Simulated assay, not measured.
Amino acid sequence: MTTIKTTQSVYQQLRGHLTELKLADAAEALPGILDQAQAEDWTLTHALERLLAIEVTATEKRRLAGRFRFANLPTGATLENFDHDAASGIDPHLLAELGTCRFLENATNVLLIGPPGVGKTHIATGLGHAAINAGYRVYFTSAADLAARCHRAAIEGKWSTMMRFFAGPTLLIIDELGYLPLPAEAASALFQVINQRYLKTSIVITTNRPVGAWGEILGDTTVAAAMLDRLLHRSVVVPLDGASYRLRNHHAAAEEIRRATTGTNLG
């Protein structure tokens, strides 16, 4: 009887220790692990490894989920489901290399340049997914939203806090530069963000305008030149071309409707 009580007491103490250390998944798994260890005659080391492996796996899942929540990615697009055949001008081997995230190790930037609808945002989002899965912190924003947040922070006296926020992620994705005109203060804010990340952490930018037109986008050729000097110092420039994804989908849907209703192809 005393031995049984002692065993029960030790078990409760062990579970209590796990709970106190906030190892909730290990605490929940403890009964099953002990039963399996006894049934399969595991060593103490084996049992401890299996118990802690459960906690490590659960912890990494929570961290991964947290990185995805923070990243603010717009879709679930990945590099694996990118349509290479539809986007001319991009080397699949280069895309695969970028997907390894090795460019993050030396703070290389990636510029995705091309007309609307050719997959720039898809690739940028896919790089974000790859980086998150590799354990990096990522944040996705449009150029317009970044500018608006910086402008609001300046008005509210929170400029330094906002700059620290945009400096933090290992990968910052700035989408749709050039789609909307940026006021002078927005160009300055974008430059400050890029400048503080220079040679420290990576930026992915998607734009529909060639780099030679950035002075027009930003309304200031001097700021544009300084920004490009920092971005291009260590960068990969990826030009994309081809028909718009959205237009292709529209034409495909129209073709399906035509076939269903008339039994003929669009001519």
Results as ranks from 00 to 15, higher is better:
20 E>W: 02
21 L>Y: 13
21 L>Q: 14
23 L>W: 10
24 A>K: 08
24 A>R: 09
26 A>H: 10
28 E>S: 05
28 E>H: 05
29 A>L: 01
29 A>G: 01
29 A>R: 13
30 L>E: 08
30 L>T: 06
31 P>D: 13
31 P>Y: 10
31 P>Q: 12
31 P>E: 11
32 G>P: 00
33 I>P: 05
34 L>I: 10
34 L>S: 06
35 D>M: 07
35 D>P: 00
36 Q>M: 07
38 Q>S: 13
38 Q>P: 00
39 A>Q: 15
39 A>R: 15
39 A>Y: 09
39 A>E: 14
40 E>S: 12
41 D>V: 04
41 D>R: 14
42 W>T: 02
42 W>A: 01
42 W>E: 04
43 T>Y: 04
44 L>R: 01
44 L>F: 05
45 T>Y: 08
45 T>V: 03
47 A>L: 14
47 A>V: 04
48 L>Y: 07
48 L>G: 02
49 E>S: 11
49 E>Y: 06
49 E>G: 04
50 R>L: 03
50 R>S: 06
50 R>P: 00
51 L>Y: 06
51 L>E: 03
51 L>G: 07
53 A>R: 07
53 A>F: 00
54 I>P: 00
54 I>L: 01
55 E>V: 00
56 V>S: 08
57 T>R: 13
57 T>N: 11
59 T>F: 02
60 E>K: 06
61 K>D: 13
61 K>E: 14
62 R>W: 02
62 R>L: 04
63 R>N: 11
64 L>T: 11
64 L>W: 05
65 A>Q: 13
65 A>F: 05
65 A>V: 08
66 G>E: 11
67 R>G: 03
68 F>A: 10
69 R>E: 05
71 A>V: 08
71 A>S: 09
72 N>M: 05
72 N>A: 14
73 L>F: 05
73 L>Q: 05
73 L>R: 04
74 P>A: 04
74 P>S: 04
75 T>M: 01
75 T>E: 02
75 T>N: 03
75 T>P: 01
76 G>Q: 06
76 G>L: 01
77 A>P: 00
77 A>Q: 09
77 A>R: 13
78 T>N: 07
78 T>C: 04
78 T>S: 12
81 N>D: 11
81 N>I: 01
82 F>Q: 08
83 D>T: 05
84 H>N: 12
84 H>G: 06
85 D>S: 14
86 A>I: 07
86 A>K: 12
86 A>E: 07
86 A>F: 14
87 A>W: 10
87 A>S: 15
87 A>I: 12
87 A>V: 15
88 S>V: 15
88 S>T: 15
88 S>R: 15
89 G>H: 14
89 G>N: 14
89 G>D: 12
90 I>R: 13
90 I>L: 15
91 D>T: 12
91 D>Y: 14
93 H>V: 14
93 H>N: 15
94 L>V: 11
95 L>I: 15
96 A>N: 12
96 A>K: 15
96 A>H: 13
96 A>W: 08
97 E>D: 14
99 G>Y: 10
99 G>R: 12
100 T>W: 11
100 T>I: 07
100 T>G: 08
100 T>H: 11
101 C>F: 00
102 R>S: 07
102 R>W: 02
103 F>K: 13
103 F>E: 06
104 L>F: 04
104 L>Q: 09
105 E>H: 13
105 E>F: 04
105 E>D: 13
106 N>C: 01
107 A>K: 11
107 A>T: 10
108 T>E: 12
108 T>P: 00
108 T>F: 01
